[in-house]
Design a protein around this nucleic acid. Structure first.
Lengths: 366, 366
DNA sequence: AATTAGCACTCAAAAAAGGGGGTTGACAAA
DNA sequence: TTTGTCAACCCCCTTTTTTGAGTGCTAATT
């Protein structure tokens, strides 16, 4: 639904709009007719451009922060730019390769995939990067194991299908026998294989209550673990990295905005909720890459920020999102392809650690 | 080595110095003689105070940013303040209790102790909080376990005596048999119990090379794990949280400083090194709480910042540090006792998860 | 009908011009 | 050694002036 009018006029109008957006992103100064005339459309007079810009303003694409001071793009303009004007070219092969390399060396060499991914996003985009896993309760369990730490302490380790690893210590008031622990562990894994966390919890509660033999005597531990598993704050995970990047690319004027946004993001709850909503929204409309510009985010804290995000699937189940959050005036083309690409990297990485068969099939070592 | 001169004069001089520091920390404005006269020393004239302040300036404790515009403390003044003037009172019992509660509910309910501790530090101090674990290679291993993920993938989980849990996925090019994996795991843990990581690695390499029976057939996996363990970036861990807090308490004037410091901190390498040095320094001089003020940090990026940190011991071995990093003009008394207290909380928490016997001794469930 | 040139007008940002207000240094008196 | 006094200082805030890029309008041009 391109709104701008037809023919030759259209192309010129669009050209001007595009130019204003790009110029403004670059310089952060209102852009005026003269500048466009001299630098972008030398064979059109500034007066003509003024007329066109007046139209664009009428239509809600531009506005003047002060009378007689040049114009800047509205959110609507960014939206139009992102939808029709920005040709999201694939990144150059060289660039892709470079990123892929960086990604591999981080994600496979260090233990926290999510954090590393956020950091990479931040570094390459110049904004803050995030990775979000939601609905952990509805994800399928891959493993739940117990590692004996000390006579009265056990480390529980939970791995979900999205590759998230969560671990927490559990105290017991008796000495834990490692052998029994192993039995318990095996029993549990057999019982809950392939179930979602919610389902798994239900089953296990039943076993605990019915005093199932494998659990007998360790009901205490099991109960503790089950309780830990259903804590609400354990329902999603959020990693945000790269505030430094954001600060770096921020001028003093935006100081207040930035403060507000940090306040918002560090209060993790609300940001989580936002992402959660966004995720279900994207799932419904079946889109992969999403760009939310300024006030499209509804939250007043974000009215000067944009979020570029992509859904992250394992199989055909959306297990999370990742993306960047930064100033509204960002280089959308670059950032969009970046988020896109890193999203695909994370996806294939997750795929790797879940269902993938070994490289040489069937060759058991026994 | 108190430098200020004797008797009544001393006490007055010190009182003035203390007042200047406190006042400046509070208001961020140069403080002048009249203000001191009226609010702190009503029975002394401003002229006298001027004289004393002139002396203090001579001696390097104060300086005037501009002629006739009040004076502000130098780093030396802060140092003197911290060493002699600030009575680091124990926190109020009520306060302690409040914090302890918050700490417990975070650390025990969520899976990453370090992150949670940093966050708490940040929240309570109004600056950025950090937790640092170093020298992981020299720490004793508590457990090294393997969890089968998929036919060709295993999750390695390493727990050290400092309570650090590190996990990373390992791929194999054959189908892993869970039973064999368990045998391997048990074998390894028996072999390396109580050894440092470095020692453990050496032992295991030997076993791998000599083709020890428990390892046979899984040498591939073992090799991979050993390689992952000795990666240099796995040698220390650093968590920094609370940039938002820092930003919140920062005025526009300090914008540049803050930028610089973020650049520094997000480039984790250098900050790690700094902390590492500091840690060994503190270990040598056997001090627990350390305050580094402004240019005492040597790094120019930190010349307007201070670091308050405390060593963190398990047994009598220093396994890490924690603290806060914030503007030079901070409330040292408050922050020092805070860091101190949270340090002790983390220590006892670590103690808990390592050597501690169960609450009811000897009552095995079998 | 679209484009252009010209002109008066607007207004934010930068520069310049005042006050205050609090501070200092100096000196003489207590 | 302390204090009272005072001229000089200079940052900070507010007000004023200047400047210049930009606009809208209208009439002329294509």
């Amino acid at each position: 639904m391109r709104i701008l009018k037809p023919e030759v006029a259209k192309s010129r109008k669009e050209k001007i709009l595009r130019w204003v957006v790009q110029q403004y992103v670059e310089t952060r100064r209102p852009v005026g007719s003269q500048m466009i005339a001299s630098e972008a459309l030398p064979d059109v007079s500034s007066a003509t451009i003024r007329n066109i810009m007046a139209e664009l303003e009428e239509e809600g694409y531009l506005y003047q922060p002060h009378t007689s001071g040049g114009r800047i793009p509205t959110d609507k303009a960014y939206r139009y730019y992102v939808d029709y004007l920005a040709n999201v070219q694939k990144m150059a092969a060289k660039e892709r390769e470079r990123i892929e390399e960086a990604y591999d060396s981080r994600v496979n060499e260090v233990d926290n995939m999510m954090v590393q991914t956020s950091r990479l996003l931040a570094m390459l985009s110049g904004a803050a990067g995030f990775v979000y896993t939601s609905n952990v309760q509805e994800q399928r369990v891959q493993r739940l194991d117990f590692i004996p730490l000390a006579p009265g302490a056990v480390l529980a380790v939970l791995v979900t299908e999205s590759g998230t690893v969560r671990h927490w210590p559990v105290r017991t008031n008796y000495v834990v026998n490692p052998t029994r622990l192993r039995v318990l562990s095996r029993f549990i894994n057999e019982e809950i294989e392939g179930l979602t966390l919610t389902q798994a919890r239900r089953i296990l509660w039943q076993h605990v209550h019915s005093g199932h033999q494998e659990i007998a005597g360790m009901a205490d531990l099991a109960t503790q673990v089950l309780k830990d598993m259903e804590r609400p704050q354990a329902d999603n995970e959020l990693y945000v990295e790269g505030f430094g990047q954001l600060l770096e690319n921020t001028s003093e004027d935006d100081f207040e905005d930035l403060k507000q946004m940090m306040r918002f993001v560090e209060e993790r709850e609300r940001f989580s909720n936002l992402l959660s909503e966004k995720m279900t929204g994207m799932e419904k409309s079946n889109q992969k890459l999403n760009v939310s510009i300024g006030s499209e985010n509804e939250l007043k804290e974000l009215k000067n920020l944009s979020i570029v995000s992509t859904a992250c699937k394992v199989g055909d189940k959306t297990v999370g999102m990742l993306g960047i959050i930064g100033p509204k005036h960002m280089e959308y083309t670059r950032v969009m392809s970046l988020v896109n690409f890193i999203g695909s990297l994370l996806e294939s990485s997750l795929q790797n650690w879940t269902a993938l068969p070994p490289t040489e099939k069937g060759e058991d070592y026994e």
